[in-house]
Amino acid sequence: MNITEFQKWVGDFYEERGWTQYGPFIRVGFLMEEAGELARAVRAIEIGRDRPDEGEKQADEARQELVEELGDVLGNLILLANQYNIPFEEILDAHKAKLQKRYE
């Protein structure tokens, strides 16, 4: 699936569940929550959680959690882009151009 198809799929999936009703400020709050969960997944892989109430995860389980959290962050970014009618490809192209110009 390419990014354009995925952007539409995410929008449709969330819309069907009534999850697109939240405005940008609330969506950014969801994004920050997901970013925190992503940070926790990275920490678990890199330095561990060191909590007796949480068992150590196997490498494949920790990687799967990381993949899922990256997806949650991406989904929320896509929903923000959708709220402003910005195709994700435009974001990718603009970011690439900005970096190439900055570091030419």
Rank of each mutant, 00 (worst) to 15 (best):
V28G: 07
Y103T: 14
Q83A: 04
L80R: 09
A59C: 07
L74D: 00
I26V: 15
Q21W: 08
D72Q: 11
P24E: 12
N82Q: 09
L80K: 13
V42W: 05
G75E: 07
W19C: 01
D12F: 01
G23N: 03
N82K: 07
E89A: 09
Y22G: 04
L66C: 05
V73M: 00
L99M: 08
M32W: 10
V10W: 02
G11I: 04
V10R: 06
L70Y: 06
V10P: 06
E15P: 00
L74M: 03
R49L: 15
L92E: 10
E16Y: 05
Y84F: 12
N2S: 11
N2F: 05
E65Q: 12
I26M: 12
P87S: 00
I86K: 04
N2D: 15
E15G: 00
R102Q: 01
V42A: 02
D12C: 01
R49Y: 15
A44N: 15
N2T: 09
A35E: 10
G18E: 08
A44D: 15
G23P: 00
D60E: 01
D72G: 04
I45F: 06
E61Q: 13
E46T: 12
M1T: 13
N85C: 07
F13Y: 12
G48D: 12
L31V: 00
R49E: 15
H95L: 07
V28H: 07
K98E: 11
E54V: 09
G23E: 03
K8S: 07
D53Y: 13
G75T: 11
A94Y: 03
K98C: 04
Q83K: 09
P52L: 08
D60S: 06
Y14R: 08
P52H: 12
H95C: 00
K8H: 13
N2L: 02
K101M: 10
L92W: 04
K96I: 14
E15T: 14
D93K: 09
I3K: 00
G11C: 10
A44C: 07
A97N: 11
A59I: 15
T4A: 07
Y103K: 10
R49I: 15
W19S: 03
